[in-house]
Amino acid sequence: MNNFAIQTVDLSYNFGNQVIIKDLNLNVPKGSIYGFLGPNGAGKTTTIKILLNLLRSPNDTVFIFGKDINTHRIECLKQMGSLVEQPAIYAHLTGKENLRNRALLLGIHKSKCDELLKLVGLSDAANKKAGKYSLGMKQRLGIALALLSDPNLLLLDEPTNGLDPSGIIEIRNLMIELAEKHQKTILVSSHLLAEIEKTATHIGIINKGALLFQGEVSELRNLNKPALKIETNNNGFSAQLLSQKGIEILREDNGSIYLNYQDKTDIAQINALLVTNGIDVYGIGAESKDLENLFLDITSKN
């Protein structure tokens, strides 16, 4: 048995001639919260639909807990709960009836419905028609529906869409609790890195159907080496001077120079070099690119 809840092997998918996914090798470890990141239209939802067998994939390309989704469809789906795009709920039924209907299909006792309504904070709106719910409430009902069968693997496609900040924090805490206390594996897609870097243990970045990065969040942070930011009274001369000394200038913008460095002694030497050459140094210090910019950098490369 492998240790992956989800594994795709060279998965490709086309709509007609249009390539949507190409050679995707997702590895989602059991018990992880896997942030599946990419800009809109990168192929996230298509991938999730393939993982749910809603879109057809070739045999031996998609494995859920080690089993091929095409040949073990029901067995795989039994272990999965999902929320794909906007929550799919019956607008003419109440929130509680939506859950009851799903419980009927899955052979789950109806008392579980009340439990879940409470969990997602919809107990007071349980008997209100779901069509009259706000987007945030619909999203929470969608999450309750995904959790109803107590699945080992949750696929959540942009679950915080339309939620207010406190709702986002609640969902975040719920995901952490599910993963830590109940050993669930969660794949959560988003187009905002900031939104999931706080919860995810692993990150996969996809753009134009190709996986550009996959690994633990710490690995992503390691990619993000800080640059040295310097502000002087004469940036042009400073840059020239530094270049002559063989120091690589990363960029110059907004009155600052950014360059690579190794450690603190480099900072002291660079400062000394500038000062001894008659340059006034107004500011010097390490500056990390935030992860969001790193994400943009990665996705803009392909």
Binding site: R73, I74, S82, E85, A88, A91, L106
Partner: peptide, 17 residues
Amino acid sequence: IEHKNDTWKTLFSQPLN
């Protein structure tokens, strides 16, 4: 009822044949 509520996807992602 499924088209309108966009529920085909949830119906067919249930562990039912």
